[in-house]
Amino acid sequence: MADAFTGDRIILKDLGFYGYHGLMSEEKALGQRFFVDLECGVDLSQAGYTDTISNTVSYAGIYDVVKEAFDGRRMHLIEAVAQNIVTAIFEAFQEVKWIVVRVRKPEAPIAMVRGEAAIELHRQRKS
């Protein structure tokens, strides 16, 4: 069986947001920066042949859905933030067959000098 996460994709990287997601009271009160990387599996062949926006999914539209999903509800876990983004994209864009989303938290409340904490979800649309 072929890997489900292959083929054409729309990619959005380093989307920066300020949010109040987290378990610690400081995170909830002060907030922090988050970064989202996203790959959406979409057949882009017709868009490539026709040069017509109606034959693709607008990355601006994807961004709007990601922003709304990120800002819509405060979550304890970045895993839940990512799942909220996946669910919203699948609801908004029937053409998206799979999603890889990474949520990065560069100021995670751990004693690190450099780096970031992150999670990555791989999800396929259920038939």
Rank of each mutant, 00 (worst) to 15 (best):
T50K: 09
T52G: 01
V96F: 06
A47D: 06
Y18E: 03
V101H: 03
G7K: 05
V101P: 03
T52V: 12
E116Q: 15
W98T: 09
F90S: 09
K97N: 13
Y20H: 14
R74N: 12
R102L: 06
F93C: 08
F17A: 05
I99Y: 04
W98R: 05
H122K: 15
G19N: 06
R102F: 02
T6P: 00
V57Y: 06
R102N: 09
R104V: 03
Q83E: 15
T56F: 06
I85H: 00
A108I: 02
C40F: 08
D64L: 13
K105P: 00
L77R: 05
I62Q: 02
S54D: 14
D3E: 12
L23M: 12
D3R: 02
E27R: 02
E91L: 14
I119R: 03
L77Y: 07
D8F: 09
T56C: 07
Y20C: 08
L12G: 03
G19W: 01
D71E: 15
D8G: 15
R74G: 03
F5E: 05
T52C: 14
A111Y: 09
Y59N: 10
E68S: 13
E95P: 00
G31S: 05
F5Q: 02
N84F: 06
A82K: 01
L121H: 03
I11S: 13
R73W: 04
Y20N: 06
G48L: 09
L30C: 09
G19L: 04
Q94L: 14
F35A: 08
